[in-house]
Structures are given as structure tokens and as C-alpha cells.
Design a protein around this nucleic acid. Structure first.
Lengths: 246, 246
DNA sequence: TCAATAGTGTCTGTAAGACAGTATTGT
DNA sequence: ACAATACTGTCTTACAGACACTATTGA
């Protein structure tokens, strides 16, 4: 098929940064490219937007086609359009951020060669290569996710529908790469209006005292923001100066 | 000229939301459209991206062409791509946020029929009509600017190169639509590391005591965030409850 | 002189961090 | 019993808001 136009021709694609926390590790869903360019390299799932399709719909479709993962909602991240970012033709890519709960083992995608979860820190390491400008996109997405945790109930999207406060805390710890005080964390999130809804159930089979299960509340923003600050694993801050990021 | 492609054909445009504060009023730069569709209606400055042009460059070019305004930097806002947003053909528009200091009276654009500043509140009123989905874009931009004030030195971009703390405060008051306590504001911004750089000069010709002039510092984020809360004009909060947004 | 704006100092209440202490499970 | 995790309470300190007070100008 050949398309024609009297305006400059762009291709528009979507790329999806799908993040999760598995076993306390912050991970991203990547596919192995089955076609040129960058054949065989790791890349974010994504592809061309159809002419009659909304951007977010295209992102959800590509994610499902290539990885068989579906997520409840996606958030637009940023658009990447440097003239040289795709060697084939001028392509503008709209990136989306998706958050998935721990989905167990990786799924074979129906479309791409293979889809799997990878540690975010590893993929952001200098020497790792991702197709196109996907390393940059991943970095932007991680930054966005980290800041979203503080002001929005995003963390709950990393958990299954019902979760304990401990599970929620481990999401923060994995995404931020810090350790948090369990007591203070408990107080902050339970006092944040609309963030969590208590259920009558408790967890089972854990090592310690069973924990109450919660569901995500209706709030879309957290007031006041969690404003949690770091307690480094190696050197716990005991006394004195407040550890604000400076 | 006719372009051809074997991929679906999109047009890619940029739209610029250029905001300023003039006489204590929060305003946006709009042009009157000289061509169909939406001829004669108000719209954000913007237009088609050239094939070899970066998105941010296109935004700066269109802004300058249509309004003769230039700004030091622009920030990407969001991308709008609903299939029906342009009646001509499938168009994806990347919106940018630009902040300008008070530039005095409006300039005639060299390209569009006319460019002028309009009150943001008026243009966001329900009954106002802007071309395309530009009212939505404007609303998103205003939300972004409001939240940026708290965490970044963006407010200084609304001021000329050297400014007083009073001028800076009036930016916050205009953008947020609130009144702030001058003393506490002074303390917060002067204590925020890297936000402001003191000069030796003072303002002249004002009504009260001359104020020291400051320049923007090197910080790109403000630590800690200003976290300023509202003192309503009508009903000053004197005693008791803290006025956090709830 | 007064009005207006700039800037400093200080008090108070809220909330974050530290951490001790209690509760309830599996091993 | 002990380790592990969940949860509660309390002390201390940092910081936002209120506001009194001083400083310096123009009218």
C-alpha cells in the first residue's frame, strides 16, 4: 500500500515502558526485536499507530500484541522526535508509562521474538544498548515513576488488587532504591486520605504476624505528599540532621 | 509537492502555550487564525514540523514566525493525537510550554493575522472557544505551570533578568490566584539553595523601600519545595487549622 | 507626617523521623 | 523460645504560618 500526502510525511509510533516490581526488584518489560533495524536487540514494546486509532489505544494494542500483557491504565510520558532517531524515515514516537503488578513468570509475546522482564538498574547501565533511543525513554520513565510515587497512588498499581502495607512499602523501596522505616511508612499511608481502603481480610502464610489487606482508594493525588525520606541500608540516620535531598 | 509513504501518513504539528504575567495578570499568547479551518478564531501559535527539524526547534520557529516572541527555553508539555482533532487529516500535535517575562505591549506577528495576550482565566471559561483542542491544551499547560512553580525555579522565567522578591511573589500570586504572606515568602525563597543569586543593586522608583535585585540561580529544582499555602484574599486565615489542600 | 513596600525576628502548631514497645504469626 | 513481621505510641526537631516589628522610600 502506498500513501500520499501534500504535507510532510511522518510516521507516528508508540512505545510502552511497562514497569513492575518482582521479588523486590524494579523491572521493565522488553522485547527482542525480530526485524531490522536493530534486529536481535532489546527494545521497548511498541509500533506504528493506525490511522484511525487513538494514541493510548495504540499503546495498549502494541503492548498486548508483543508481550500479551494488559494493564488497567497508561499515562502519556513524552514524545521523542529527533530527526535521526529512526534510520528508516522520519518518525515521531509517543512514549507511554504503564505499571503492572507482579505477573509471575514472563510471557512469550505473540508478535515479537520474545518478551521478558529485566532489572531497570541493569538496563540503565552505561554500557547496555537498547534499540533506537529507548534507553533515554526508559530513563525518563523511571524518573517519572519515582516522582509519581510521592504524589499519587501509583504505587498501588504495582500491587495486586488487595495488598498489605508491607507489600506497598517494598514497592517504594524497590523503585526508590532505599529502605524506609516500617512504622512511619505505615502511619503516613494510612493517614493519607483516600489512598487506601481497609478490608476485613488479613494476609496468610507470611513469616510474621498477618497483615491487614487494603485496596486502592479513590484519591488520584495524595495529600499531603508522602515526603518520605531515605534511610540508607548501610548507614541508618539515627540522630541529628534531617536527610532532605540537597 | 506530493509526498508518498508505505506507512500510514500523519501530519505532525507543534503548538506553543506561551504564558506571562503582566500587571499581575496571568496571560497567554494567542493568534487569530488567518486560514481554514477555524479561520478568524483564536488559537495557540503553532504549525507543521519540517521533515528535518527537531520538535523543539519547530516550536520556537513557529512561535517567532507567528508572534515575533522568542523565549530562552521551552519545555515539552504533552502530545495530542485524537483521530478527529483536525478535520483535514490525521494530525498529531506536540505541545510546548514557554514562559516569557512581561514584554510590554503585543507585537504584530509577521505571519498570523494578529497576536495578542489574553487573560488565562477568561480563555479557560467554559463558553470561550479556541480552535482545535487548544482549550484543553491551554488547561494542561496552566496546570503544569502551576505545579512547576513549587518545585522548580520556573517563576524566575516570568521576570526580567534582575528582579525583586516582590516581583517574584506577584508571579506566584498571579499564576496560583492566591495571596501570599510577603515575610514568609521572602524567607522561603531566599533560603532555597541555588534559587536566587543576590546582586548589589536595588530597585528604584517604587512606592516603598527599595528592594534588593536578584538573578536566577543555577538550581534546576528547589529543595525543599516551596510548599506555600494559600492565604485567601477575602478571608485571611489567622488562627488555627492549617490550610493544606484537602 | 503617613502610606507603602522591604525585610527581620519570634512564637506556635503540625508533622516527620527515631525508636521503644506490643501483637501475632511460623519454625 | 525465638525470629520475623505488623502495628501503636511517644519524644524530638524542623519547618510553615502568623504576625509584630524595624527600615527606607515617595507623596
Amino acid at each position: 500500500m502506498v500513501y500520499t500526502s501534500s504535507f510532510p510525511i511522518f510516521s507516528v509510533t508508540v512505545d510502552v515502558v511497562c514497569l513492575t516490581v518482582r521479588d523486590g526488584r524494579f523491572q521493565v518489560l522488553l522485547v527482542e526485536r525480530g526485524a531490522e533495524p536493530f534486529r536481535g536487540q532489546l527494545a521497548l514494546p511498541g509500533g506504528f499507530v493506525h490511522l484511525d486509532e487513538d494514541l493510548a489505544d495504540a499503546a495498549a494494542r502494541e503492548l498486548a500484541e508483543e508481550t500479551s500483557v494488559t494493564v488497567p491504565a497508561m499515562e502519556q510520558l513524552r514524545t521523542y522526535g529527533r530527526p535521526d532517531r529512526d534510520p528508516r524515515q522520519r518518525t515521531v514516537s509517543v512514549a507511554f508509562l504503564a505499571i503492572a503488578p507482579d505477573l509471575g513468570e514472563a510471557r512469550g509475546g505473540s508478535d515479537a521474538a520474545g518478551a521478558d522482564w529485566y532489572d531497570v538498574a541493569t538496563m540503565l547501565a552505561r554500557r547496555r544498548r537498547l534499540a533506537f533511543d529507548h534507553r533515554r525513554i526508559l530513563a525518563d520513565a523511571v524518573g517519572r515513576a519515582r516522582s509519581r510515587l510521592e504524589y499519587s497512588p501509583l504505587a498501588a498499581a504495582f500491587c495486586s488488587r488487595e495488598f498489605t502495607i508491607g507489600e506497598l512499602r517494598r514497592v517504594y523501596e524497590a523503585v526508590w532504591g532505599v529502605r524506609l522505616d516500617p512504622s512511619n511508612f505505615h502511619r503516613k499511608v494510612t493517614e493519607a486520605e483516600g489512598f487506601l481502603v481497609e478490608t476485613k481480610k488479613t494476609s496468610e502464610g507470611g513469616r510474621g504476624r498477618p497483615a491487614r489487606l487494603y485496596r486502592r482508594g479513590k484519591a488520584t493525588t495524595i495529600h499531603p505528599p508522602l515526603n518520605l525520606r531515605v534511610r540508607e541500608p548501610a548507614q541508618p540516620v539515627r540522630q541529628g540532621r534531617r536527610t532532605r535531598t540537597t
